[in-house]
């Protein structure tokens, strides 16, 4: 009997979780739904292909130029910094995909609240920081994985990369990483108190297109009306795209700011957004 008792006591040794393990387990829980489910994995990969085909090939601004006059290529080069509008747009699409994936991933916390999962994990001895960072990691990993696929498909479909080195690709992805990190934090924050999916959908619809159109995803800032230029020059999406284009497209592309400054801006956005979300979650994320 004594032996039995002591065995129970030993087994009852209270464990405390390690931050990294807890955070990764939470992120992995969300990721499993994606990589263990072939249908969702394929759909999430097909989506960027459709975007590229529709926006890049059907919505081909480059074709407008070439059909008007023979001096078009020069004009196109002057405005977009490349003679291939498809290549120009592909980087916009990479950013579009990164933010839409971050939105969905960040806001999935709404469902977790609804099904009591948040309550459940709040009674475990983990920190709220783990919960928030786990959500962000899930979105960032999904976004980057999809971006890789999208880039490969874009190249297959005829995207031309002037600089195609490990460094240039990594530079473009580092920018997407920061953008996705900041956006995920923003959307986790927006979803912290939401309990119903309708508000989630409303927020996504409200912010998705403005974030995209008030950026250099489709056109350079130089041909925008000045009010839109102002908004776009504050939009972090513009900076991520600018870095990607100047890293991959070529010397004729004029970046929004020097890559160093753009990285700094994106870094501040990502760290700042995450800090705000983590601080507010201490008060807002509760049972």
């Amino acid at each position: 009997m004594d032996k039995q008792e002591s065995k129970i006591r030993v087994e009852r040794k209270i464990h405390y979780p390690n931050f990294f393990r807890a955070t990764w387990s939470l992120a992995n829980r969300d990721l499993k739904k994606w990589y263990l489910s072939p249908a969702i994995l394929i759909i999430s990969m097909v989506q960027p292909i459709i975007w590229l085909a529709l926006f890049g090939k059907a919505f081909n601004l480059g074709a407008l130029f070439t059909s008007v006059s023979s001096g078009a290529t020069a004009a196109e080069l002057a405005i977009f910094g490349t003679t291939s509008y498809f290549s120009y747009l592909a980087l916009g699409m990479l950013a579009f995909m990164a933010i839409s994936t971050s939105m969905m991933g960040g806001m999935s916390i709404v469902w977790d609240r609804r099904f009591g999962f948040v309550d459940k994990i709040l009674t475990a001895p983990i920190t709220k920081l783990s919960i928030i960072v786990g959500k962000i990691l899930n979105s960032v990993i999904r976004a980057l994985a999809q971006a890789v696929v999208l880039l490969i498909i874009a190249i297959v479909l005829g995207m031309t990369l002037t600089y195609f080195t490990i460094t240039s690709v990594l530079t473009a992805f580092a920018a997407l990483f920061l953008l996705s990190f900041g956006m995920s934090s923003l959307f986790v924050l927006l979803a912290l108190r939401a309990r119903d999916w309708q508000s989630q959908m409303m927020i996504i619809n409200l912010l998705m297109l403005p974030l995209l159109f008030a950026s250099n995803a489709f056109f350079p800032l130089s041909i925008m009306p000045s009010w839109l230029q102002t908004i776009a020059s504050w939009n972090p999406v513009s900076y991520a795209i600018s870095i990607g284009r100047s890293a991959l497209l070529g010397p004729s592309y004029t970046p929004l700011a020097s890559n160093l400054m753009s990285f700094l801006y994106l870094g501040i956005f990502a760290v700042g957004m995450t800090a705000i979300t983590v601080i507010l979650s201490r008060r807002l994320l509760k049972g």
């Binding site: 464990h15 405390y16 979780p17 390690n18 393990r21 807890a22 387990s25 939470l26 829980r29 499993k32 459940k120 994990i121 475990a124 001895p125 983990i126």
Partner: peptide, 12 residues
């Protein structure tokens, strides 16, 4: 997987 997740969160 569900139970394993909680095991991780409890640091077991």
């Amino acid at each position: 997987d569900n139970i394993l997740l909680l095991a991780d969160l409890y640091g077991i």
